[in-house]
Amino acid sequence: MPLDIKRDQLGQFSSIDAFRAVVEGMSETLGEKATGVALVAAGRLRGKKLADELGLKGATQNLEDATQQITKVLGAEGSRLCIIDKIEITDDVVKVYTSETLCAVGGNGNTPPRCTFTLGIVWGIMTELLQKKLKGSHTESILHGGAYDVFEFTQI
Rank of each mutant, 00 (worst) to 15 (best):
C115G: 14
V122R: 01
L10Y: 11
T60F: 03
P113W: 05
Q9E: 14
T139C: 05
T60P: 00
R46G: 07
D149T: 06
A76Y: 11
A51W: 00
Q69E: 10
G55F: 08
Q69T: 05
Q9H: 15
N110A: 14
S137R: 15
F153E: 02
Q131I: 12
K135H: 07
L30F: 14
T71G: 14
S137Y: 10
Y97N: 07
V96Q: 05
M26F: 11
G43N: 07
G106N: 10
P112A: 10
V37K: 11
L81M: 11
D4P: 09
W123F: 15
Y148S: 01
H138E: 06
Y97R: 07
L119S: 05
K57M: 06
P112V: 09
F19H: 09
I83W: 12
C115A: 12
T98K: 00
F19R: 04
R44I: 04
G31C: 10
G55M: 08
L39S: 06
G120K: 04
C103T: 02
M1Y: 11
N108W: 14
L130Y: 04
L3N: 13
K135I: 08
I125V: 12
I5M: 12
I70Q: 03
T154M: 08
G25W: 07
L54I: 04
P113A: 11
E53D: 14
V37C: 06
K33R: 15
S99K: 07
I87F: 06
K133S: 11
E32G: 08
G107T: 14
R46S: 13
T90H: 00
C82Y: 03
T118L: 02
T71Q: 15
G107Q: 14
K33T: 13
T111A: 15
V96S: 06
F13W: 13
G36S: 13
E100S: 05
L10V: 08
A51K: 01
T101Q: 02
H144P: 01
G146H: 05
